[in-house]
């Protein structure tokens, strides 16, 4: 069953009435329940735009989005979604538990439940020893980890993660990867964007490669490697992008 469906999604960024940049152009894909789906692409390829459109943060120029059978602005649907933004920025005067509690309240989670989850999540992301530290004193890696905890505060069915390992050290990357696999085993659906190919290769069931706002290809990793006659994900990534650029130059 598809829990996320995107049909012919287009996003243009305008200055005045003049079309300036293609954010996304006619993108369609779907994410199945319980899988980890990775969006790959170089910087500026449209990964973050796609995720922001999915969450109703940006308005699409055209196209349709369906998450758990609802549109992207539906409040009830959002109760089942967790989001970790790229380079997460939070209210730096709050402590970790205060931040989680604030987000918990927006999900209308009862106080008792939210307090239990905060304890559990702080242990999970290894921030239980810095409970009284304001976020402005957190390192980049710690912010990433509290962001991950914040994205799980509502025990979501779908987790949307934008570059979840940016800023983490190698141990942190491995721990995050293990956590994602554990969450998948618990039945959660994960949609993540990344430009760390090895990370995607290890955790994702299916991938999509974006470039300049276009979806170049999507499918299972083995299936795509076979289709493009590539030697691993890195080769596949380079091949699809170079092919697209060559076609663009010819036009």
């Amino acid at each position: 069953m598809n829990v996320i469906e995107i049909k012919e999604l287009t996003k243009y960024y305008y200055i005045g009435r003049k079309k300036v940049v293609i954010g996304l152009e006619n993108v369609s894909f779907s994410v199945e329940e319980g899988e980890i789906y990775g969006i790959l692409g170089p910087n500026g390829s449209g990964k973050t735009t796609c995720l922001k459109l999915l969450l109703g943060i940006l308005y699409p120029t055209s196209g349709e989005i369906s998450i758990l059978g609802k549109n992207q602005f539906d409040i009830e649907m959002k109760k089942n979604v967790g989001f970790l933004p790229e380079n997460p920025y939070y209210y730096d005067y709050l402590t970790g538990p205060e931040l989680l509690k604030f987000y918990g309240k927006l999900f209308e989670i009862p106080d008792k439940t939210v307090n239990e989850r905060i304890e559990k999540l702080l242990y999970l992301v290894k921030l239980h020893e810095v409970k009284k530290l304001a976020l402005r004193h957190y390192s980049k890696g710690m912010l990433e980890r509290i962001g991950l905890a914040a994205s799980l505060i509502n025990d979501p069915k779908i987790l949307i993660l934008d570059e979840p390992t940016t800023g983490l050290d190698p141990i942190g990357c491995i721990e995050t990867r293990d956590l994602l696999i554990q969450l998948k085993m618990e039945g959660k659906t994960i949609l993540l964007s990344s430009h760390f190919l090895s990370e995607v290769e290890r955790v994702c069931d299916r991938i999509a490669i974006f470039h300049r706002g276009y979806l170049l290809t999507t499918g299972g990793l083995d299936e795509l490697i076979k289709k493009y006659n590539a030697d691993g994900l890195e080769d596949l990534f380079v091949k699809t992008i170079q092919e697209f650029d060559r076609k663009g130059e010819k036009k």
Binding site: K52, G56, I57, K78, P85, Y89, Y90, E108
Partner: peptide, 14 residues
């Protein structure tokens, strides 16, 4: 400016 709005708008609020 601090981009906290992205996280906020992803929550179930209008």
């Amino acid at each position: 400016e601090k981009r906290t709005i992205y996280t906020l708008f992803s929550k179930p609020i209008t």
